[in-house]
Design a protein around this nucleic acid. Structure first.
Lengths: 217, 217, 217, 217
DNA sequence: TATGAATGAGGGTTCATTCAT
DNA sequence: CATGAATGAACCCTCATTCAT
């Protein structure tokens, strides 16, 4: 069997296991078994648990970004662009739940939240930072989109940079929560999820209370 | 040293370590060392890693809920209530970043996202579900609030139940993301975070583009 | 509470726990709790787990020996003496099952059975030898009785010393097995057990097959 | 080194250590060291301390049963059959003293001897029951043999069922005690031990006193 | 290309024992 | 007379990783 295909099998298995068990709880034994190969082969091809995880993250992140990018037309109105991006996002996360689990389930843990931080970093889970970095890229991209939209809107060419960053964080967080929710208990279609999020983020709860809602024109 | 105080020390240390390393990666050795006691004492007082984690979750969750509840007056307008609750939330998470880390960092992990799921559930980390349950309670509460507000607004007495649930998920997700962001890289005050989130969730991006923003009257 | 009584309580608890769990598996915590005192007090009075076990063995062994001795008249025929001793033995072990469990349950393990014996003795369970010593005393006593009886019997004044020792071992082993059996599943009275053992050891299976049985005249 | 051979080495070591120290006191470290391998390998091949112990018991029990079965001809007189079985038994236990130690050293421990029994059973050593079960099988087999012999003897076709059970217990207990004795202090050949036990159990002490002894015709 | 065999290191848990009061 | 507080040491078990083939 050619190397490329074997590697894909291993990554598939790893994504599945990392998604279900998280980085620390996942065991190389389980991954190798699910991939149908022996452990040394996994090490031969992918070097270490850390590298394997890294490869999973990169593959799934790239797939997600590609899917979103492919779903958005750049020559339409800002709200329409957002709608299309969200729809693509929810579609993709529904199609690849394990990939989404890997990307999302270990997000936090990068930043030294405790001010004093006497805890040595102890090569514990150094890899996990990678996910954080990826998320930050996405947030940066969304930040850029919002700023652009604000600039285009003639009435409000300048939102404070920091506020835009906050709005992007909020939007991304809301999208993540909805993706988890849609993949989990509730069975919600990607379009429904996107609509809900447009109503929430574009129109706002205030307007919603007054019966005004956003709709894809 | 009296037992109660020692127990508090241990919980403080555990919250710190669990927050930074997550459940699996946290070691009882590190917790004991940070608490300044020997490992057997931790076991004598708190029984097991699982129980210790449980105790952390319960303590921090209760503190957070109390803080939010204390910050909200119930005899004011719906948007004002939301603003007050968010402010209290961001204030608390900023004051106890480790507590927030414990509560938030291991949220996802419950749902069997992969449809086939040939992976045995392996008694691994059954505790973590506790956090998920807590989050669901909060979401349920927020869901209730939104439905209530919709009922009060004469123009829109009935939102589809499922849509309300989605909105609650989105709101909670956005708040979580902002809390992480405010505690991390950006240094943002609780009030700023609350304002940003009100603009986002109450007014909506569409209005924001038009220069209309929410403000605490 | 006077020391003597406290000590008795502790020994009672220890006999119970040692009997049920064996030396290694018994924990000082459980003994102290069952005795209704704190652990340091147990150490104050009985010094160490090893000494405590020793004390249990001595107390129960003495009680057993006393009971048997008190039940045997020395001025009767040899078989009658044996019958009386066995009856007393079975009566006592039925009355104090925990005591018997302590005495019997850790019997073996003294002798270096493996010829080469590269295993270091490793202060593992050094105490247990005590039980073996006690058992050997009993066997020696029974050996003496059999030899005496043989000498009294005019037809067979001299049995080979080694054979007598073997017979004593067999008799003691049979009695132990019957005591366990009588205390356990089967509910058999002391007299029944003694009769069975007299039929077995005095008359022999061969005679039993022919319908001849021993009876207390 | 092939797996099968390594496994045998481990079982040899385990039998030795379990025999000398008993289940609880035996440490996997010592077993691994005696087997000349690392601890993880023991776990890889034999799963757990409990499984390892179980494997020891099964191997040694099977070997013993096979040896006895092979030594007995079924077409000879009852007493001759008993003699042959005992000889095979004592021969085997002398040849594999460690195996015998494992089988015999943890026999008792099942029955709830103390009537009230407030002691929680505490999952401690559930394995040990395995040995007890084995012994009960043997006793049941001997019980069957004795009943059969009684039925064949025309003079005594019916012994009370309960009495037969007691006789079997006594016979097995006597054999166990003699095996321990023969392996320990005294150096006694298998044939001597068998002869002693035949004199004891077949002829009975009463006949012995009168100079009548059993002999292999 | 692929694997069976093997291990160093570390984690959770328990227990006999002591000290200060 | 009695105990609450505390620990060093050891034990069972798992896991990422490598070597020889």
């Amino acid at each position: 069997m050619p190397r490329a295909e074997r590697e894909r099998q291993m990554l598939d298995a790893a994504v599945r296991v990392f998604g279900k068990r998280r980085y620390r709880a996942a065991s190389m034994d389980e991954i190798a078994e699910l991939a149908g190969v022996s452990k040394p082969l996994v090490y031969l091809y992918l070097n270490s648990k850390e590298d394997l995880f890294s490869a999973c993250i990169r593959r799934e992140a790239e797939a997600l970004v590609d899917a979103v990018r492919a779903g958005v037309r750049t020559d339409v109105a800002a709200d329409r662009q957002l709608w299309e991006g969200l729809t693509a996002f929810f579609t993709h996360t529904a199609e690849r739940p394990d990939g989404w689990a890997v990307l999302h389930s270990q997000a936090r843990s990068g930043g030294d939240s405790s001010s004093e931080s006497q805890l040595r970093s102890s090569k514990g889970d150094p890899v996990v930072a990678e996910v954080g970095a990826m998320r930050e890229e996405i947030v940066a991209f969304v930040t850029h989109l919002i700023a652009e939209a604000a600039r285009e809107a003639h009435d409000n060419p300048e939102l404070a940079e920091r506020e835009v960053a906050g709005l992007a964080q909020a939007l991304v967080g809301a999208a993540e929560a909805l993706a988890d929710w849609a993949n989990g208990d509730a069975t919600v279609s990607a379009k429904e999820a996107a609509t809900t999020l447009m109503n929430f983020s574009w129109s706002g709860l205030g307007n919603l209370m007054d019966g005004e809602r956003w709709s894809a024109r």
